[in-house]
């Protein structure tokens, strides 16, 4: 069974959907992602759909599900790179994905996740920042 790879980047998880997904693949991704959040204690999930040429109600539901589930698991989700034609079609289809945070591109998506983390960390002591993931940190971090 093929799977969509999930990359770990510090306390965030990255998924880039590059293939025309059949429904089972979407379900597997949903399972994989939630168990990975649980296992790694990730605090953010970024899903890049810029290569997706179509989002139908099933994939739309999967996106909404992942967003809702990860929120319960204490991780923020951001979906990035939806193509204009896909957005127009989704609206016409009747799906507006309320409650799912969207961003224009990976850069802006990452900025959103970091801002969410910073806001959460702002409540607690500063030295606890990033300490829970054992070190890997952000992509921009110097070794």
């Amino acid at each position: 069974m093929d799977r969509i790879p999930i990359l770990r980047m510090g306390e965030f998880l990255l998924v880039s959907i590059q293939v025309d997904m059949h429904d089972q693949l979407a379900m597997t991704l949903q399972d994989d992602l939630t168990s990975m959040i649980e296992r790694t204690g990730a605090r953010g999930v970024l899903i890049d759909i810029s290569a997706l040429e179509m989002v139908d109600s099933f994939i739309g539901r999967m996106i909404a599900n992942i967003s809702g589930m990860s929120r319960i698991l204490d991780a923020h989700t951001v979906v990035v790179g939806m193509q204009p034609a896909v957005a127009i079609t989704l609206v016409e289809l009747g799906l507006s994905l309320p409650g799912v945070k969207m961003a224009l591109n990976i850069e802006k998506g990452m900025a959103y996740l970091r801002a969410q983390r910073a806001a959460e960390e702002g409540d607690g002591p500063n030295d606890l920042r990033y300490s829970d993931d054992g070190g890997a940190g952000y992509g921009t971090r110097q070794e």
Partner: peptide, 17 residues
């Protein structure tokens, strides 16, 4: 057009499912 393609493909996906 790209939008029309996407609409048709999406409709086909829904009905095929």
């Amino acid at each position: 057009s790209l939008v029309d393609q996407t609409k048709m493909v999406t409709a086909a996906s829904e009905l095929a499912r």
